[in-house]
Amino acid sequence: MKKYVFYPGCVMPTEQYAYELSIREIMPILDIELIDVKDFSCCGEPMKSVNQLMTIYLSARNISIAEKEGYDIFVPCPMCHLSLSECQNILENNHEINKKINEMLSSENLCYNKPINIVNTVDLIHDIVGLDKIKKLVKNPLNKLKAATHYGCHLIRPSEIGRPVDSENPQKMENIIKAIGAEPHDYSEKLDCCGAMINTNLPESALTKTGQKLVAVQNYGFDVFVDVCPWCHRMFDSKQKKAGETVAAKLDMPVVYLTQLLGLSFGIDRNKLGLNLNLSPVDKIKFGGK
């Protein structure tokens, strides 16, 4: 049993419950113990446009809290993952900012000492749990299920900060999906953005981005669209109907979290994985061939 401090962020625990439910369902099966900790806050990334110092502070604050527990931190949201990683980079490379941030942290009785390992859903499953273990756990192989992946921009870029997957040719989700019997395929729009970041101020444009990507995926004939980011999932699943209306297309694409798909292949009950919460037509997903 490997232990991780579980950092939920904002969007997942306040809205994207399906992600949290499916994570909490499958992690014990994968021999991962999640430690819930009080006192976390937003990672700060959504505020980077307004005040980046706040972003750095909030990330440093969360790292400091995790550091006290003495375990590595599991960050399922790619945006939080980038924010925490970039914060560590800056604090490690810039003494002046490090000092300033630590002064502020001290008024909350916190201290950033050293970098910790920050893992995301994808590298946790792919690198730490490992594909062999996944293969052994599969009860319902998702045979012939043609799957499109979406990593989320913050998980793949910028590589300078050190991302858990290759920036131009990420394949870890594909490998995991292959391990549970489904068929991932690369497609030209794979690395494109969902638009979520401008949903804050330009929702129409954001939905257009979402719609355009889903139209392409649908036209390629994929059976399922798999993501790992609560922000992206909110666009592709929760707002799929609206996105379809925005781009004047009929969208009918099952969108699931990677953790939900894994849970399904492990034979876990659909509702326990929060599949009832997906608004996209996930009932279309067929098992063991069409």
């Binding site: 809205e15 976390f40 959504p46 101020n201 929760s238 009832n276």
Partner: peptide, 24 residues
């Protein structure tokens, strides 16, 4: 909505409070 998110962070640390959502 940046101002609203900022306000929410100030008051409860997260960009939004717990949401009521609907299932399928």
């Amino acid at each position: 909505k940046y101002s609203a998110m900022l306000q929410s962070i100030l008051s409860n640390g997260l960009i939004q409070d717990v949401q009521t959502i609907s299932d399928r």
